[in-house]
Design a binder for these strands. Structure first.
Length: 509
RNA sequence: GGAGCGUUCGUCUAACGGUUAGGACGCCAGGUUUUCAUCCUGGUAAUACGGGUUCGAUUCCCGUACGCUCUACCA
């Protein structure tokens, strides 16, 4: 590659960033880093009616959470700024004027109402060479009339004048040769009545000015690609045009079609990367972050939706993804999102993650549940003890809260049916044994030691360990779950153990 | 309606003309765990259809079907 790779992610700030968006970011990022290039964030806020306050900040925050930091952005700055299209308004105007001067674009004075009427009148109406002359524009009208309209400040838009019967084609990096007949392409609006460019003009001008070498976007853009190719041809040069790569879509798990926010709500899983609160409706849509996903896992699972390196490997660090990424292994077909597999990725990453780091991430959930943690090192230890049973971060609460406080709910229903005086006296004895040790200044013992001791006592009472283990567990943790009973005793120590036995004994009497 | 794109187990995917079509998630069964989870073992299940090309097609070509995307002064 002769010039430095430069790619861009160009979202419009209209709401939360969904899976597909983040995956587009990821592929941009991986490609850029793999080629030692640069990754740019450009905000496409040319539609003032759809602007949503906070959405841009949200995008920046999401990228930061995922660890996909841009080299240039509205926030980071850079040599090709500004990176917000609303701040580049004047730039686009010049290019639109150039196109007019070339005869490759024209003024159109049709009002929205007139267009609506036309669309109703003619089924499948297209503003193209077929109907161009029936409309009010600088091609159909005489120069005098056009001048008059312009002089009177009649609102107008600028439309591209698509040529007749030409073949426009591009080499898509993922799809190969794609071609279109211009006779079916319509005269898209380039500059709106408010002076803002549409996506079509803005993307071409900015990709050029920002020296973008590879342009990735969702497959939904493919049908409008001929407009962009034409614009490149008219304004700049086809050899400077970035290599296009139209990424496959992420589909809903059931049925077909693009995954939407509503699908997540319907099926009970997040679609946005992070929580998003719509400032207008004040409703919050849940995100992967808040659901308890690790950013490493989130990035990992997204990468596997539409890409693989040809081996059986599925768990990748970001560094491994960067090293292995290549566009020619990106799929053409869309991928249905599977939340079960997503959780599996997260579980794998939880198991893999360092206990210290994990403890820091889990801490807020304990704070929220109002479970007090006296010593951070104790939390680190506990996290290590239970992490292999957690798929999502909030599960640490249910899986580990008993290490910090006595269970509030004791599943006595599972003990009571087989409960009898013999068992009752056994646990009384056990409590007494532990109390005795405490009097001797012993606070805890190893799990193996505790187990041997326990079994000895069981034998003395002429009982079987099997019928005592479950009740003991339930006394300690509240239910039928958790690590080995004696490992728990070792950690929570004798004092709490005795208290929990006595508490349950009371409940059972 | 038109145009473009797509199609391997339920799902994510491997196999770039020759494999008993492989792996992973899920599910089922067994084992470990005197609980649950983890873990281990095994099982389940796929080349949309029809024509070519070829000694041989999941793979290349054509057609059909189905699906998706787009068809806004939204991106």
């Amino acid at each position: 590659m002769d010039s430095k790779v430069r790619v861009r992610f160009a979202p419009s700030p209209t709401g939360g960033l969904h899976l597909g968006g983040v995956r587009t970011v990821l592929f941009n990022y991986l490609f850029a880093k793999h080629h030692n290039g640069e990754f740019i964030l450009r905000i496409e806020d040319t539609d003032q009616t759809r602007f949503v306050p906070g959405a841009e900040q949200y995008i920046q925050d999401t990228l930061a959470w995922c660890g996909l930091t841009p080299n240039e952005s509205p926030l980071h700055g850079g040599p090709y700024g500004p990176y917000r299209q609303s701040e580049r308004k004047a730039i686009y105007r010049q290019y639109a004027d150039t196109l007019i001067a070339q005869g490759n674009a024209y003024y159109a004075f049709d009002t929205p109402e007139e267009l609506d009427a036309k669309r109703k009148e003619i089924p499948n109406f297209q503003y193209s060479r077929v109907h161009r002359m029936e409309m009010k524009n600088s091609v159909s009208l005489s120069p005098e009339v056009v001048d008059e309209l312009l002089k009177n400040n009649t609102p107008y838009v600028i439309r591209i004048k698509v040529p007749e019967n030409e073949e426009v084609s591009l080499e898509d990096v993922i799809r190969g040769h794609v071609s279109f007949d211009t006779s079916i392409v319509d005269d898209k609006v380039l500059l709106k009545a408010d002076g803002m460019p549409t996506y079509h003009l803005a993307v071409v001008v900015d990709d050029h000015l920002m020296k973008i070498t590879h342009a990735f976007r969702g497959e939904e853009w493919l049908p409008s690609a001929p407009v962009h190719v034409l614009l490149w041809k008219y304004l700049f040069s086809l050899d400077q045009m970035p290599k296009w790569a139209h990424l496959p879509l992420i589909l809903k798990p059931d049925g077909n079609g693009k995954l939407s926010k509503r699908d997540g709500e319907r099926l009970g899983f997040p679609v946005f990367a992070m929580d998003w609160t719509d400032p207008n409706t004040n409703t919050t849509t849940i995100g992967f972050k808040e659901r308890g996903f690790l950013p490493e896992a989130f990035v990992n699972l997204l990468a596997m939706l539409g890409w693989n390196d040809g081996t059986d490997k599925e768990i990748y660090t970001i560094e491994e993804l960067i090293a292995g990424f290549s566009l020619d292994r990106v799929h053409k077909g869309g991928a249905k999102f599977d939340y079960e597999k997503a959780k599996w990725f997260n579980a794998e990453w939880i198991k893999k993650m360092d206990n210290e780091k994990l403890a820091a991430l889990v801490k807020p959930y304990f704070d929220e549940a109002k479970i007090e943690i006296h010593e951070h090192s104790y939390l680190v230890k506990v996290v290590g003890l239970v992490k292999e049973r957690c798929h999502l971060l909030p599960e640490f609460i249910t899986q580990a809260s008993f290490y910090f406080q006595a269970p509030t709910q004791i599943d006595t229903a599972s003990i009571a049916p087989k409960w009898d005086a013999k068992k009752s006296s056994f646990f009384n004895e056990l409590a007494k044994l532990y109390s005795g040790k405490m009097d001797a200044g012993i606070t805890t013992a190893s799990a193996t030691e505790l187990e041997a001791e326990f079994k000895e006592l069981v034998a003395k009472h002429e009982l079987k360990p099997g019928e005592l283990m479950l009740p003991f567990r339930i006394m300690l943790v509240g239910g039928k779950f958790g690590p080995g009973v004696f490992e728990i005793v070792e950690v929570i120590e004798l004092k709490d153990t005795v208290a929990r036995i006595q508490h349950s004994l009371q409940l059972l009497s």
